[in-house]
Amino acid sequence: MLIDQVMQAAPVIPVLVMNGEHDPAELANVLVEAGLPVLEVTLRTPDALDAVRAMAKVPGAIVGAGTVLNPRQLDAAQEAGAQFIVAPGLTEPLTRAAQASGIAYLPGVATAGGIMRGLDLGLERFKFFPAEAAGGLPALRSLAAPFGAVRFCPTGGITEATAPDWLAEPAVTCIGGSWLVKKGLSLAEIGALAARAGALRAR
């Protein structure tokens, strides 16, 4: 699967920190049925790789691993069934490993220098991270202007209220959303949030 296919499959990619609160397969089913098939499981908890394994078996789910920091974590994520990986930053060792493996890969950038390093490595798709802390929409617009072929998935600090503004940007293909699965929300509440997010579309 190509990274463009991942980014174009849904307007919002839920960013999931799995802590045992919900059964991974049940959560994945709720999100897929609501119109959000692309699921990013962050490798921040001991449950993460098991969650990837369980979610990867859910029909229609496109499951990836986030917060991938090095080739070792890349290998573990692929072994667990991840179809794409997301990194908070851009490094050559991880980029080379991802390219050699053939997995869809979305590294994080927040500066023009980061984008240029990515372009030098053959990349044109990036996570803009941390989106709000790195300057929000004005920063993204300024960064996107010199790089016409580059497309972004902004992630970090985006809310349900601000999501439409981000998706209206021509350089934005999709966004990462951590507001969809917050601690204490029931599966029904998550499903309602996901359905509203699934109805959004990048312009």
Results as ranks from 00 to 15, higher is better:
I85W: 07
R203H: 08
M18H: 15
R53W: 00
P59E: 13
P88Y: 06
G148M: 14
L27F: 00
V15F: 08
P170Y: 08
G64H: 12
E132R: 08
I175Y: 04
V15N: 07
V30I: 13
L121A: 14
A139E: 12
Q73Y: 06
A51D: 01
A61M: 07
P46H: 09
H22K: 01
I62C: 09
A145E: 13
A161E: 15
S101T: 07
A54N: 02
A199E: 15
A48R: 03
A61I: 04
G191I: 02
K127D: 10
V15L: 11
V109L: 11
A171N: 06
G102A: 09
T111V: 12
I13V: 15
Q99G: 03
P46W: 08
S178K: 08
R44F: 13
P154H: 07
I103D: 09
L31T: 04
E40F: 06
A195G: 00
T155D: 01
A65L: 12
V150G: 06
F129H: 12
R196N: 12
A195M: 01
G118L: 06
V38E: 11
A161C: 03
I175P: 07
R125S: 11
T162M: 03
T159C: 07
L187F: 00
L49F: 01
A199N: 07
G135V: 05
A145H: 09
N19M: 06
G102D: 05
M7W: 04
W166L: 06
T42R: 10
V150T: 03
G89I: 11
V52W: 01
L39M: 13
G118E: 12
A51Y: 00
Q78T: 00
H22T: 00
G66A: 09
D4S: 15
R201M: 04
V86R: 06
L185T: 06
P107S: 06
N70W: 09
P164E: 09
G156N: 04
V41C: 03
E33F: 00
T155H: 02
A82V: 03
A98H: 11
G114V: 05
L74W: 05
G89C: 11
A134W: 01
K127W: 05
E33T: 10
D120Y: 05
R96E: 14
A97G: 09
V86D: 07
S186D: 05
A110M: 15
I62D: 07
D165I: 00
E92V: 15
A80Y: 01
C174F: 06
A145N: 11
A77S: 14
R44S: 07
L2N: 15
A149E: 15
M1C: 11
P138K: 02
K182D: 01
L74T: 06
F126I: 13
M18N: 01
L187T: 02
A51R: 00
A197V: 08
G60W: 10
D50N: 10
Q73T: 10
L119I: 15
G81E: 04
E33L: 01
A56Q: 12
A97S: 10
L180W: 00
A202Q: 04
R125I: 05
A97V: 09
F126T: 08
D4N: 14
L31W: 05
V38L: 13
E189P: 02
I62W: 04
N19C: 03
K127C: 09
M7K: 05
I103V: 15
F128A: 13
A87Y: 03
R141K: 15
G148I: 12
A97F: 05
P59C: 10
F84P: 11
V38N: 07
E40I: 08
G191T: 00
I175F: 03
F128V: 13
I3E: 10
